[in-house]
């Protein structure tokens, strides 16, 4: 079963959420990352996500499998966009179902943090001044975009 997916097109969060809900679920938590109009003091007009698809799918699955081991959750999913995105578009979604809310919140937070640190996806930002750049953040949370 695939818990992690890359999507070249906008995707339906409601359908993904519905896949996680059943009679055992007492708590559901989700995170949505959206494209905002600024980063590190610069006005952003849009961005592109590029992935090393083969490895991103393997590593994304690994993150979600590890989350299911580490936390008392029933299941989890993550979908990350690739390609060109406009301001206000959904970039990444994480959903977690659990019997209780504590594990759902904790696993959701852990998954998005691990995805951002481990999965080979890169953000290319376009700026209002006309230039554009790849974001290659420094390790240990030094990235002001965190």
């Amino acid at each position: 079963m695939n818990r992690f997916a890359l999507s070249e097109t906008p995707f339906d969060v409601a359908a993904l959420r519905a896949q996680l809900l059943d009679a055992r679920v007492g708590g559901y938590a989700s995170f949505e990352g959206w494209v905002r109009d600024h980063n590190a003091g610069r006005e952003v007009t849009g961005l592109r996500y590029e992935a090393y698809v083969t490895l991103a799918e393997v590593e994304g699955e690994r993150v979600l499998a590890e989350a299911c081991e580490r936390f008392a959750i029933l299941d989890a999913r993550c979908v990350h966009r690739t390609g060109d995105l406009a301001i206000g578009e959904l970039a990444v979604w994480v959903g977690v179902a659990a019997a209780h809310r504590d594990a759902a919140f904790a696993a959701c937070r852990w998954i998005i943090d691990e995805v951002k640190q481990r999965v080979p996806i890169w953000k290319h930002e376009r700026y209002a001044q006309g230039d554009a750049d790849w974001l290659h953040p420094a390790p240990k949370g030094d990235d002001p975009a965190d």
Binding site: V115, V119, P120, I121
Partner: peptide, 10 residues
């Protein structure tokens, strides 16, 4: 072989 620059998904 792929060299993986610092990632910036999310």
């Amino acid at each position: 072989i792929a060299f993986i620059p610092p990632v910036s998904g999310g």
